[in-house]
Write a protein that binds this DNA or RNA. Structure first.
Lengths: 153, 153
DNA sequence: AAGAAATAGGTTGCGCACAATTTAATTCGC
DNA sequence: GCGAATTAAATTGTGCGCAACCTATTTCTT
């Protein structure tokens, strides 16, 4: 009884903790990224491209768990800012390949202090951060799995 | 050197883990709340009101870390759906008090299975969930503290 | 008591996030 | 080889989340 209610409240609390901490992260990054004219989602797209250029929209979406409805307008804004170019793949005209411009590559240098500054706000060791990251990623995986199942497993 | 770069990547990874897991939670709740005609943010506002009715917009915002720019339109939608009423406080006309309607109170019953169903997706014990919730909340607190400081502490 | 400062809530504008749908290109089945 | 099914991206519409700004009310100062 009491235990059940407590557990039920807990599931809500856990979700809310992630909901609110992701907003807190977003606000923290906003201040750091504003001088670069980037939002956090734009920044993570660039992180992906800095690691591997010439990806398709779909490949970026798979890495970030985002779909074209989110990425297409975001990528158009990054193109408008001059950081990337979007070109149809000549081999498969359905695909759009994203590649960095000189300006996009140059941003990497200007952004290299950002993770360090965020790291200062975390108040935890690298090992703790590593462990927490893994635990959260595992949880995300389970949620994705549940989402791909029929309504009531 | 290598250690530094690894740590820098880690801070990004931790933030991204929260960013993506909160989307995953959002999608999970969306399916459960859709029959009730609620979004997750609307649901958490109702959770707060089910706990304590007659709160002001500001008090709701303090509990959820949201401001009036987010809450005002959301509350208007909840009012449009008939779940709450918004009335100016007669003692202090600046404040707007939110109170549940009969429909809003009745929703609580219909929503009572939701946390349990989410709990099933978590794949962790109540103790693990409790510990994780606390750790994430502590991190959120530190981020809020950092945010209220001057640019470079 | 009168003006200044603070406070609560609302408004505007922008950028996600995502469901649902559409369009165009490619691949599959026969 | 040709129509059907599949796939990639774009489009449309809704709802946050927040900064910046505005309005109305209350409180502070003197």
């Amino acid at each position: 009884m009491t235990t059940d209610l407590t557990n039920l409240a807990l599931d809500n609390q856990l979700c809310f903790a992630f909901y609110s901490v992701s907003h807190a992260f977003n606000r923290a990054y906003r201040r750091l990224l504003e001088p670069l004219g980037l939002t956090y989602p734009q920044y993570v797209v660039l992180l992906v491209l800095w690691e591997q250029d010439e990806l398709t929209v779909k490949e970026i979406g798979e890495r970030l768990f985002l779909d074209s409805g989110t990425l297409t307008p975001l990528l158009k804004r990054l193109e408008g800012a001059g950081h990337i170019r979007r070109t149809r793949d000549r081999k498969d005209e359905r695909q759009v390949r994203i590649h960095l411009t000189e300006s996009g590559r140059a941003l990497r240098e200007r952004a290299k202090e950002v993770p360090f500054q965020v790291g200062c706000m975390l108040g935890m060791s690298a090992d703790e951060a590593r462990a927490l990251t893994q635990e959260v990623a595992k949880l995300r995986g389970r949620l994705h799995d549940s989402a791909s199942l029929p309504p009531d497993p």
